[in-house]
């Protein structure tokens, strides 16, 4: 898979194969793939949360390779520092990891795809093959990429902030309203039940 992807791009200018970028890319991609696989296979929900954590760190690393440093750090701050901890809290508060997490009875209507653990693996492989076939068939990757210019990495927080404060101002203010809604909604829902 990896080999196919690399060979496909054409006009990328000659850059040393082994640069920090590729190392970072490989490491974070590897971390992500492994954690995704683990997620699919694990039954214990706490493990699932940790693997989610690892996957998100992997994605942060990918962001880094895409020269999106602010985004990587935000991802770490928000997801790793916030959402995962919240998930852990939720797991603890909803009876820990003894809950049954995989479907037992066969799915009435659709194909047995969503059965037991083994079927998961088969399903995963089948879909991978399907993707490659579709990609090559529809020439998904190449058509758009006409030219790829090796852009030097530049810190993005200043320009992102400028963009945020001028062009996307309305979204910036709207997000705070969204957060307010989420806060009040969740607080309302999570308020202890009065017996």
């Amino acid at each position: 898979m990896l080999v196919v992807a690399i060979e496909k791009e054409r006009t990328f200018e000659k850059v040393a194969i082994v640069s920090f970028l590729t190392i970072l890319f490989i490491l974070s991609a590897l971390l992500m793939l492994v954690s995704c696989l683990a997620l699919l296979l694990t039954k214990n929900i706490m493990h699932a949360c940790t693997f989610l954590l690892a996957a998100l760190l992997g994605v942060a690393g990918l962001y880094l390779t895409l020269h999106a440093d602010t985004l990587a750090v935000t991802q770490v701050l928000v997801y790793v520092g916030g959402v995962v901890i919240l998930m852990l809290f939720a797991v603890v508060l909803t009876g820990g990891q003894d809950q049954e997490s995989i479907t037992k009875e066969k799915f009435p209507h659709l194909a047995p795809l969503f059965g037991s653990k083994s079927t998961f693996l088969k399903a995963f492989l089948v879909s991978m093959i399907f993707f490659v076939a579709a990609a090559s068939l529809l020439r998904l990757g190449e058509k758009e990429i006409v030219h790829v210019v090796a852009v030097n990495y530049a810190p993005t927080i200043q320009s992102l902030g400028q963009l945020l404060m001028t062009d996307y101002l309305f979204a910036f203010e709207l997000v705070s309203v969204l957060l307010l809604g989420a806060l009040i909604g969740a607080a309302l829902i999570a308020r202890p039940m009065k017996k």
């Binding site: 990896l2 992807a5 690399i6 496909k8 791009e9 990328f12 850059v15 194969i17 970028l21 590729t22 890319f25 991609a29 990918l62 390779t65 895409l66 990609a135 998904l140 990757g141 190449e142 758009e144 990429i145 790829v148």
Partner: peptide, 8 residues
């Protein structure tokens, strides 16, 4: 090299 399709 690292290209768009790998990310896709």
């Amino acid at each position: 090299m690292v290209s768009l399709s790998s990310f896709l």
